[in-house]
Amino acid sequence: MTDFSTTNQKPLFRKPSIFAGLEHVIAAESTRHGGVSPAPFNSLNLGGSQDSQTHILANNHRFFAALGVPFEQVAKSHQVHGNEIINVKAPDRFEGFDALITNVPGIQLAVTVADCTPILVFDTVNKASAAIHAGWRGTVSGIVSKTIAAMQNSFGSDPKNCFAYVGTCIDECSFEVGEDVAQHFTSAFKRWDENKGKFFVDLKNANREQLLAAGLLQENIEVSPYSTVLHNEDYFSYRLENGVTGRLLATIGYFPEV
């Protein structure tokens, strides 16, 4: 991934390397730096929280301006930890969708997270994009698999022509869960810790496996090396910060005029 620095030399966002060679694709993942929000939302809080909506909006304008994307071209949804997908025809604010897809140039899709897994996808042939929010519920309900299928059905996407980024989230070593959550995951994506009497779940690899099972090539998938918990100085973590924190944003769009 590539860092893009603010004036204090801390990255405002990072760009996934997997999309670097794709012309006119704008893709990035925010950090917590370079915004206007005070503690505990400091400082680039981009989503729903107890923070002032004035701060959140100002941060969004600052973030997208740094990417060269007009804010009025952004499409987001209020996420509900489900598996509903919307095919976006025009920039807007939607309700109840955890994945957005589009093949319309000039629409910047975005999802917010603070431990859940963001996944970005781009179809290089049909110039179609997807932005996915996958918490543990979305992961076990197959939201990534369903999104790839929706891209196939809606745009004729061939998974072999798709590139994907599995973004920064809570890592396996920090995602401690009880049996009520662990029971939904296969043994490949959970680990029992005898000393703690808890399971640990690997959301990154669980979602990466859905991409592979859907037909994406291994070499076309990048997984973030960062953790919202282990690298909390750069990222927001709902769990580590006891629910009083900001939101990160992962975004992708195709802008042939840029």
Rank of each mutant, 00 (worst) to 15 (best):
F94T: 02
T251A: 12
V74E: 04
V69L: 11
D98G: 10
T168W: 09
R239H: 08
Y254K: 05
E209N: 12
Q9M: 05
V144T: 05
R93D: 07
K10C: 02
I119K: 00
C173K: 14
Q183N: 07
H61C: 03
S49I: 13
T102Y: 00
I119G: 00
S17V: 08
H55W: 07
N232K: 10
V36R: 02
C116K: 04
I143D: 12
F255R: 01
D158K: 06
L120I: 03
I86A: 06
Q79S: 13
T31Q: 13
D180H: 12
V104M: 00
V121C: 11
T168C: 13
T117D: 05
I143H: 03
T228A: 10
K76D: 01
S145M: 08
E72F: 07
G47L: 09
A27P: 13
S37W: 08
N161R: 14
V74S: 08
L44N: 07
N8K: 04
G82I: 10
P70H: 06
H231P: 04
A99S: 10
A58S: 10
L249G: 06
E233M: 03
I56A: 08
T102M: 00
H55E: 15
Q73S: 15
E222I: 06
N87F: 08
N59Q: 02
Q50G: 15
A128Y: 00
C116G: 13
D123C: 04
E72M: 03
V111Q: 03
M151T: 02
L109C: 05
E209F: 10
A250G: 04
S17H: 12
N205P: 01
T124P: 02
T2M: 12
G48L: 14
Y226C: 04
Q108A: 07
Q53E: 06
P91F: 13
K15N: 06
D193Y: 11
K190V: 12
I26W: 09
T7A: 11
Q210G: 15
L46V: 04
N83P: 15
C116T: 14
V181S: 10
G243V: 02
R62N: 12
F163K: 02
G243I: 06
V69H: 05
E179I: 11
F175E: 15
R239G: 06
S154E: 12
P40L: 13
N42L: 10
Q53V: 07
T117W: 14
S17A: 15
R93Q: 11
L22D: 00
S174D: 11
I101E: 00
P256A: 08
N45C: 12
F122I: 01
